[in-house]
Design a protein around this nucleic acid. Sequence first.
DNA 1: CATAAGTCGACTGTCTACAGTCGGGAGTAG
DNA 2: CTACTCCCGACTGTAGACAGTCGACTTATG
Lengths: 219, 219
Amino acid sequence: MAGLTAPLLGLEKKSLREQALSALRTAITSGELEPGRHLVETELSEMLQISRGTLREALRQLEQEGLLSAGPRGRLSVRHLDEKEIRDIYSVRAALESLAARTLCELPDRQQVTDSLHKAVDAMDAAASGTLEERIESDLEFHRTLCRLTGNETLLHSWESLEGSIRMSIMFAGLEKGVRNMSVDRHKDIVAAIDTGDAALARKTILEHMDTAAANLVA
Amino acid sequence: MAGLTAPLLGLEKKSLREQALSALRTAITSGELEPGRHLVETELSEMLQISRGTLREALRQLEQEGLLSAGPRGRLSVRHLDEKEIRDIYSVRAALESLAARTLCELPDRQQVTDSLHKAVDAMDAAASGTLEERIESDLEFHRTLCRLTGNETLLHSWESLEGSIRMSIMFAGLEKGVRNMSVDRHKDIVAAIDTGDAALARKTILEHMDTAAANLVA
DNA sequence: CATAAGTCGACTGTCTACAGTCGGGAGTAG
DNA sequence: CTACTCCCGACTGTAGACAGTCGACTTATG
């Protein structure tokens, strides 16, 4: 007699605000809303079939995620990234993920960690023959997992706040360039480094990975 | 004939949303709104004399800054930090600021940078005899400056997103503990390390500073 | 023809009102 | 006295409307 009407397994219904947030994030990071484009609240609220008030809450969040930039009088537009900004974003990303790698190495029980990471790599492997979007998703999921496994909620939250900017970086560079960074082998190296428990090595591996990744994007 | 009615020098009138944001941030990080306290939108909007819609936009932002935590059915309450979370916050902070230090060392022209940092330290010195709040403000200003001078907007933005959590950490630990980290000398060390241009040394100095800072807070 | 004043339209800022939902207390049956 | 039910009050989710402001276009004037 369970679950007759409502979905039970974590599939909680999302508020309109969250739906709008997802929809807009996708629209922006997919390029459907091209960079520089002015966003008009009345237009968007009509498109998404929600009220302006609800929409504005979502917009504030996107603004703080760095997907939107504010012009005079509160005019919002889709943020435009140049090469320097992409490098900057990846510098911060590298700092966060290298902290994650170091932290994981210092964990008492790394068995479950490496298991989860192996699974994430396997998922990338499985997606390797899929669409570009799928490959990117599985890659980001790997790195998100890296942060999540540390158990440091603040770290995870900071990374997720950056995720939108990361997606924009990839989109800006072009998906074909972004996909250069999805190599399964390189990610296996990361897992292996963490597996050894050598924090310095793990940190170095991540930093190099991010350096290469940034270079691939702006090249 | 200038500035008769309106302030001109960058003192642009802030929107009600921004005013509410500042007021709430201050109220929370000062402990006026004690941790764990449930926030009721209608109450707050009446206190602040603004409409709920406007207030909600500010709340969303505070939520993302980590000052508020969401309960069931959108109930918001002032976030509560335990010792582990404080350590976690400072880990992330350390990662960001060590990136800042490294970045500054690699800058071609560091003259202006060290000048600005010296000024910030001087400000701390001047505040040393002031109230606890003033000392904390000048300390945070120093570290914010550190991030700003890198020219990496993303880094600055990430740090500022964390600032609220940092303030809460200090408040949680108690201002008297927080003030232990305001030593002018220790900050001079940081500036000196950056001055040498030795990225590894600068990074190490910051990491140690943050380690000590976190230890002082949870001790 | 150029410049200045005036007017119109487009958007954001803000407020008020309504609807839906959950928790808790009063009241009642066993 | 306990447990169950039903109703009410408290809040959040969401919508819709009004007001103020700035830019662009038009029109009048030197």
